[in-house]
Write a protein that binds this DNA or RNA. Structure first.
Lengths: 225, 225
DNA sequence: CTATGGTAAATTGTAAACAATTAATTAAAT
DNA sequence: ATTTAATTAATTGTTTACAATTTACCATAG
């Protein structure tokens, strides 16, 4: 390991394995071979095992005694469970952001929203996606709650495990950003309840989009493979 | 390790260390010595280190590079953050319990509530405490959401890190169980929104009790020690 | 041809040894 | 006497070696 690391080898390895999972290079159900990973990162098996323990606790991997660790397989049901949880956490985020956000932060949210609108206008999802992330991360920063931030980001990672082809839709950017506007107005007016409900609604509509997308897909695949 | 364990040594060790923390035998800020723990459990340091990695991810321990792991120190601010999160998770729990709970489960809730009332009548906190846990665990079971259950239990454990003398009050059992009644009625009437709000309120009043208790304590300790 | 059993390879689980960093102690100097 | 430097001890980080379990393969019986 020649890398620069101020936080220990196992932690660095944990981040790298996490990347492999989130980028989809390791997919749901895949088995993680310890010696393989050790050679890949140029370490021994010790740090690999420690890293995996952490990722199991984080919900990205699952451990089977004497069989090893596997990338967690997330089915539709579990994904919907996480959407529900996220919806209520987002409600809290909206409340806190409206309460504790500074005027400067609100201004920056408007800036991001303007860029999102531009991406909607030219129908550029590649531009929309990172700005959307920035929008929600700015909201997180406005809450001032470390634990909430950590928990929320953890759940977002978890949802990355659920990636059936195109089910997390690229469409409906316009609807999504209209909802952003409602959230922003409520925050700008310092209305925590309204901001919270707008946030919760924002996630619930995303959940609903996923549900309809699943229904559509199941119509195209009517018989058992 | 002569113990019976179907899930690996490091996992068993993790549970034991977790117990040490939750029982307060290891207190906030305490340093965990690897060789000491290894001798204590009759293992080598490997499983200890793996267990600690898991507990760090779970939020019960904190790791400092080249210095070791310590029991996480939770201040008032962090505890209040967790209360807020729990409040909104409990709202979701209430909604789901009212939606998916079976009539049998609702009946069992009434039974627990009756025992809680009896404990209130004779002012027996030792009897109240475990039944209160049972009440909330029954609600969790009614949600049918594994992830929500896991997350909620994890946050409850986290709150155990915050234990200043008597701040988690034993009093106000009567108020607490009156809130339980409101929750139960809403669930029995299959009113998810009402049940959710009653649950959130239940946690927020607990948070408020903590806040007032802190204020009272700070009045008794006016000067810096 | 399928099923069963047994042996060998591969992989995980644990322990012990080694390296590197941090904490503690002692000695010297201002 | 207090501070600073140097040396030693203790502890963490990592690697290597060993044990136990699982998986794969092949032979043999039905």
């Amino acid at each position: 390991m020649s890398d620069f690391l101020a936080t220990g080898l196992s932690t660095a390895v944990q981040k790298k394995i996490e990347d492999l999972v989130l980028q989809g290079k390791l997919q749901g159900g895949d088995k993680l071979n310890e010696v393989e990973l050790a050679e890949m990162f140029g370490t021994s098996r010790g740090p690999i095992r420690e890293a995996c323990k952490g990722l199991v606790q984080a919900g990205l991997l699952t451990a089977v005694p004497n069989r090893g660790v596997f990338v967690r397989k997330m089915d539709v049901r579990q994904a919907l469970e996480v959407y529900d949880i996220r919806a209520f956490l987002d409600q809290l985020i909206g409340q806190l952001a409206a309460t504790h956000g500074t005027e400067q932060q609100i201004k920056e949210l408007w800036d991001i929203h303007a860029r999102l609108d531009e991406a909607v206008r030219v129908d550029d999802f590649e531009a929309y996606y990172p700005e959307n992330l920035a929008f929600h991360e700015k909201l997180l920063a406005m809450t001032g709650s470390e634990r909430l931030t950590q928990l929320y980001l953890s759940l977002v990672k978890e949802l990355h495990l659920f990636r059936r082809k195109g089910l997390i839709q690229q469409g409906s950017m316009d609807v999504s950003n209209a909802e952003h506007a409602l959230i922003l107005e409520a925050i700008a007016h310092r209305n925590p309840v309204k901001a919270g409900l707008a946030m919760r609604n924002h996630v619930m509509t995303a959940k609903q989009r996923l549900l309809t997308a699943i229904e559509l897909q199941s119509l195209n695949e009517p018989v058992v493979p």
